[in-house]
């Protein structure tokens, strides 16, 4: 099995060539204002400050003592939270398995974090059990996390329930961390909103939604297979939860497509509204190509949101 992290890194290098090199690292670093030894700003000296922190040159120009302020070098802990239930083995909007996109997103953020010297942990699971892997540094550890997610997600896994993983985090972690949640198009109900509010009070939360396969509409036809005419019916699908068969022919009518699109838009709006209200940065990714721009946008949004 090829290394999952290698795949992540190759994707990142392509992206880095396209955007400015190192931009992602910068975006990531700014999340905590964690520019380690970097100079942060100057402030007026108050009694009790360390005398060696006085910036003499600036004080001379200014006329009164100024203190150089550094952001303390501190190991951040990044906790990857994801769902390894059956839902994530289903198809995504772009036609891949959703877990591939999830692994890519987790890998990108994890790799950024470990390059930054942060430790990366994992909480994942499904409706029946939740596992955690301790936060450690190093690529080997990150690879292990990704393999754990990849290996535990399959059509025979138990059903998904992201709320379980979130409440596990709320119960078991006392330390302030950066939570990076990767989920599919979950409905954030009142209970989950409560839980997220609780988590948000303790942690920084970033949220990436992996888009589900479109069940009715033009995109559902596009992935049915290559070389098919434009008006072909989508392929037959089945639900991972109960193996219910969804014949493709039934979703070709305009009424169904319109109704589905309207309901989909409403769900998206609602999820975005809830997360915005909670101050959680949120992006969508429909395929693994979307992951890097999405993570970039996510970090950007998070920074601006502060």
């Amino acid at each position: 099995m090829p290394s999952l992290l290698t795949r992540v890194k190759s994707k990142m290098s392509i992206f880095a060539h396209r955007k400015a090199r190192g931009m992602l690292d910068g975006e990531y670093g700014s999340v905590f204002k964690g520019r380690s030894l970097d100079f942060d700003d100057l402030r007026v000296y108050v009694p009790g400050d360390e005398v060696r922190d006085i910036d003499w040159k600036a004080s001379a120009r200014h006329g009164s003592p100024l203190i150089k302020r550094y952001v303390a070098v501190r190991r951040q802990a990044v906790l990857l939270v994801t769902d390894t239930g059956r839902n994530m083995a289903a198809l995504s909007f772009g036609g891949e398995e959703k877990k591939d996109i999830a692994v890519m997103a987790l890998g990108v953020v994890g790799y950024l974090a470990q390059r930054h010297g942060d430790v990366v942990g994992l909480v994942c699971g499904d409706g029946s059990s939740t596992r955690s892997l301790p936060a450690k540094a190093g690529e080997a550890h990150l690879e292990r996390l990704l393999r754990d997610v990849n290996g535990h997600t399959g059509l025979s896994s138990p059903p998904s329930s992201l709320g379980e993983q979130l409440s596990y985090v709320a119960r078991n972690y006392r330390q302030r961390m950066l939570l990076f949640v990767v989920a599919d198009e979950v409905v954030v109900d009142a209970a989950m909103e409560q839980l997220l509010r609780r988590l948000r009070a303790q942690h920084e939360v970033l949220w990436l939604t992996v888009r589900d396969a479109e069940l009715a509409g033009p995109a559902s036809v596009r992935h049915a297979g290559g070389g098919e005419p434009a008006d072909a019916a989508p392929a037959d699908r089945f639900d991972v939860a109960d193996a219910l068969l969804l014949p493709g022919r039934l979703v070709v009518s305009d009424a169904v497509i319109r109704a589905y699109a309207a309901a989909q838009e409403q769900r998206d709006m609602k999820r975005q509204a809830v997360l915005r209200r909670l101050g959680i940065a949120h992006v969508h990714a429909g395929s693994s190509h979307d992951v890097l721009p999405a993570v970039f946008t996510l970090l950007e949004r998070h920074r601006r949101g502060k």
């Binding site: 392929a235 089945f238 639900d239 109704a259 589905y260």
Partner: peptide, 23 residues
């Protein structure tokens, strides 16, 4: 030749009255 493909949250489609009418 067409093996059904796995999807999640199918109830979001199947609960639509339009879909039920189509069925």
């Amino acid at each position: 030749e067409s093996v059904p493909r796995p999807v999640a949250h199918s109830h979001r489609l199947t609960e639509l009255p339009e879909y039920q009418a189509a069925v």
